[in-house]
Structures are given as structure tokens and as C-alpha cells.
Design a protein around this nucleic acid. Structure first.
Lengths: 251, 251
DNA sequence: CCGATTTTGTTCTCACGTTCACAAGCTCCT
DNA sequence: AGGAGCTTGTGAACGTGAGAACAAAATCGG
């Protein structure tokens, strides 16, 4: 989010060609909904239809689409095929992106086999691992190659996206190597916070965090119904037998 | 104009017991950072230290923690163990949550084997699949059971969290069954928008969407440097050879 | 015992995102 | 042809979140 060059106090601002991040995150959802409608043989859909299919509010959907341009027809709706193409073009999935997966454990395996992956816009060009026991193993129609080949592969296949499915330990080093090799977008499944230089985008998928967020809300639900005897914060005021902040010995 | 001082003029308000959603999403990150510090033998950490480890701004971290209570010591910092416990308690991972995984394909396999899963706060109590060929297969120390047993398992083990790793097709039906059985939190890996009744929380993990978001930004990067000849929206005005909105055969 | 130093907790301001509400614009029917 | 009826695109209000800045509180040295 290094897009802070908009000092415009003015109203519209138009953001030149900048689409809000929240909107970008929803475009793929719209794209999927449109594809489903298209497969069902539906040629035209209103913002209400689309919003329902995408699981969002119709006003939000219309505003999101308005950032791309005026691709609808008032009184009618959106042409499914046409809008689908426009969104695909805006996202960039009309071209193919070369992807490498690093770390062929359970998750790497699963991703390598995931079909809906290469079908639309993304092409896995290599599966890499540093473990010599894994190198050479066949997965689908691909073969696991040595992580040392990374630089050559990135250069040869113009790889711009790297997926990290290693354990937490080696993740930062793998990340550094990817960046050094020229990869500028990284999808990280390892449970660590990776640091990357400016100009490199990174996104994180973290199962454990998602579960914990669910647990928080779940605890709320049970708590309201059954266990209202939570300590609550003011109770801390009197507590002196806690791990003795800062000293233990002194004070 | 309209200083928006409608209801509460704005004192503390304390929000009763409500923690902002954005903060809830970061608490697990802080928890992980604290665990790492704890494992390194560090007993006390300042907000600056913690923020660096968690990859956020220190002011944000302090504000986040302030929603939980005053667990720090001015001039000193936070006691790592104590704060870790408080956050864990707030999230709810001091107790164990029973989890079922439905759909034992590649991804389900990977999750079932994922160790960092059951280690902290979550216990996988069943792996379920409707495919008779899979039922009975052993994965780690568990055995795949028939999806028909869902209701009995949820009731017996007080399962509150369900993970859906089926293909898109059966996902909504699986979801409905989970909800009907009493599951109130769902983590969905299937590439569809699931609808659930009020009171049920749902979170989504979608590889394909993450990649598309990366592709969007990647296209931007290349575009700024090399391909500035994108059609751009006003070009559509003259286009009449597009899929003929609304016309065609029948409506 | 007091002042200097450190670091938290909180306030204030600004930017972003969501939702409402409605005018503009298109189609269809009379 | 002209008006009725829809549906889009957008302006404006509202709510949430981020970050800077500072006052309050705790330790430590003299």
C-alpha cells in the first residue's frame, strides 16, 4: 500500500487508475460468479443477481464495477460474457502467469495436484524442494526439481509468482532467494511473517489464524449463553501474584 | 458541517466487550510472535519489539492490546508469558475446540497431517468423506469415517468447528449438513460462496483468489514499465460489435 | 527523595470502505 | 412517439481503521 501520493483534498479524486484494494479483492469473486452464470447459459444479469451469486450487497457490487468503467446497461443489467472478459482483463488473468511452488510437503503436494490452479491464468512451471529425497519424484505430469535450480527457472520461464509451502523455519530464506531471483509476488503458506523489499507483493494464507478467529467468535457465542463468569479486566487490578512484571526478584 | 456528534459524543465508550474485527484478526499474529519470543527465552518485550516481530506498526499494536486491558507496564514493556496467556484466553485457545474435516482429497489429507493444527487449541476429532473407497483409510493416527456419521460425531464430541475441503459441487450441501448437525463455525476451502443462517460464522480460504489478487498487482508493475497500451475504458463507447446486450435469441 | 528517562495507553485526525438514496439512461408498451 | 418502469452509476452520509502525537505512569540514577 505505497500509494500515498494522493494529497488531493478534492472530492472525486478518481485515483487516476487506482482501484481500491477492497474492490480488487472482490473482483475474483465476481469473476467466478460470472463464470458460473455463463456455464448455466445465462446471458444477462442484473447487479442484484450478481450480488446474490457473489454473496455481497448489490450497491457495493455496482460501485466496485464502476471503478472498471461503465460496462452495464441501465434498465437491463450486465452482459455476462462481456463483463466476465472485462474483469478478467482488469485482473490480468487473460494472460498466463508462471508460478513456482517451493516446498513439496503435504501442502505442496496438494497444491501441485490442484487442477483449478493451472486452468485459469496460472501455469505451474516448477515444483522445488531442497530435500534430495524428494527431488525427482513425479507429481502428476511434473517432477520435483532441486531448489538450487530456482534462479535458472525463474529466468528461463519469466516466473513472477512464487508460492511458499515450506515449514516456518526456512521460509524467510526461501523468500529471500525468490526475491533475489526476480520473483515479485509471493503467496506464503508458512506460519511466519515474511519481510520483503518494496516493490514485492506478499500475501499470506494461514490456516491456524483463520481457526483462531473462528474460535474467538465461537467463545463469544458460548459465553453469552452459558459461561458469563469470565474474569474480566478490572479483576487484574488486585492481582499481585502474577508473573511479576519486569522483575520477580526486585521491587 | 454536521460534526456527527449524534449519539455518544465520543468519550471512551469502551465498546462494552466488543473488540474490533481488524484487531481480532491480528491477535493470533501477536500470539505467535509472543510464543516465538518466549521460546527464545525473552521475558519482556516492548511494543516496538512486538510490533517488529508481528510485522505491524507499534501504535497499532498498542491500541490493539488496549482493547484487551492494561497488560503492560509503562517504562518497561510487556511480560511475554503473561501477555501470551491473556491473548490466548481472549481468543479462546486456552480451551480445546473439536474440529471435523469433511472431504479427504489432497487438501484434506494435507490438513489432517498438519501438525501445527492440533498442537494449540484445536483437536481434530474426525475425518469424513462420502466416498466409500476412502472410508476406512488411515491417515496418521486417524481413520476416515463415513460422512453419514456426522450428526453422531458432532453430538458426541461437541464439535463446533467444521472444515470443508470438498470440491465446489457438494460444498453447500455439506455446509447445510454441518449447520443442521449443530456446527456453528465453518472454515471453507471450496471455491464457492456458501450461505449460512445467522449465528453461524464462516471464513473462506481461497488459493485462486489470492493468486488473482497478486496477478492484478503484478500486471500493474509490468504495465507501468513496459505495456502502457491498455485499451482503457472510454474505448468502449464506439464498440457496437460486442455481444449485443439484451438482444440475441430470447430473453 | 526527586528528576530524568522510558514506554504504555489514549486522544485526535485523516483516510478508507460501506451503504443509502436518487438522478440519469435504457427499453418496452401503448 | 411518448410515458412508464427498471436498473445502472454515483454523490453523500456514516462507520471503521490507521497513524501521529502526547499525557500518564513506572523505573532508575544521583
Amino acid at each position: 500500500m505505497t500509494r500515498a501520493s494522493s494529497r488531493r483534498p478534492g472530492p472525486p479524486t478518481r485515483t487516476e487508475r487506482g482501484i481500491p484494494e477492497a474492490t480488487v479483492a472482490r473482483l475474483p469473486v465476481y469473476l467466478r460468479a460470472l463464470t458460473a452464470l455463463s456455464d448455466s447459459g445465462i446471458a444477462t444479469a442484473s447487479s442484484e443477481d450478481l450480488a446474490t451469486a457473489a454473496g455481497v450487497n448489490s450497491a457495493k457490487l455496482r460501485k466496485d464495477l464502476s471503478y472498471l468503467g461503465s460496462y452495464g446497461t441501465r434498465g437491463v443489467g450486465y452482459d455476462v460474457e462481456y463483463l466476465r472478459y472485462q474483469i478478467a482483463r482488469e485482473i490480468g488473468v487473460t494472460q498466463d502467469w508462471a508460478v513456482v511452488i517451493v516446498g513439496i510437503g503435504n501442502l505442496g503436494h496438494a497444491l501441485a495436484n490442484y487442477s483449478g490452479f493451472g486452468t485459469r491464468g496460472f501455469r505451474i512451471v516448477a515444483l522445488l524442494d531442497a530435500d534430495p529425497n524428494l527431488v525427482g519424484e513425479r507429481i502428476g505430469d511434473m517432477e520435483v526439481r532441486d531448489f538450487a535450480e530456482l534462479e535458472a527457472i525463474v529466468k528461463a520461464d519469466r516466473v513472477s509468482i512464487g508460492v511458499i509451502t515450506t515449514p516456518a523455519g526456512p521460509a524467510q530464506e526461501v523468500c529471500d532467494r525468490l526475491v533475489a531471483a526476480g520473483v515479485t509476488s509471493i503467496l506464503n503458506f508458512a506460519p511466519v511473517v515474511l519481510s520483503v523489499p518494496d516493490g514485492v507483493d506478499i500475501r499470506k494464507v494461514d490456516l491456524s489464524i483463520e481457526l483462531q478467529i473462528l474460535a474467538y467468535h465461537e467463545q463469544r457465542k458460548s459465553g453469552e449463553a452459558a459461561l458469563p463468569q469470565v474474569p474480566e479486566l478490572p479483576a487484574m487490578n488486585g492481582l499481585t501474584d502474577l508473573p511479576s512484571v519486569g522483575g520477580g526478584v526486585g521491587a
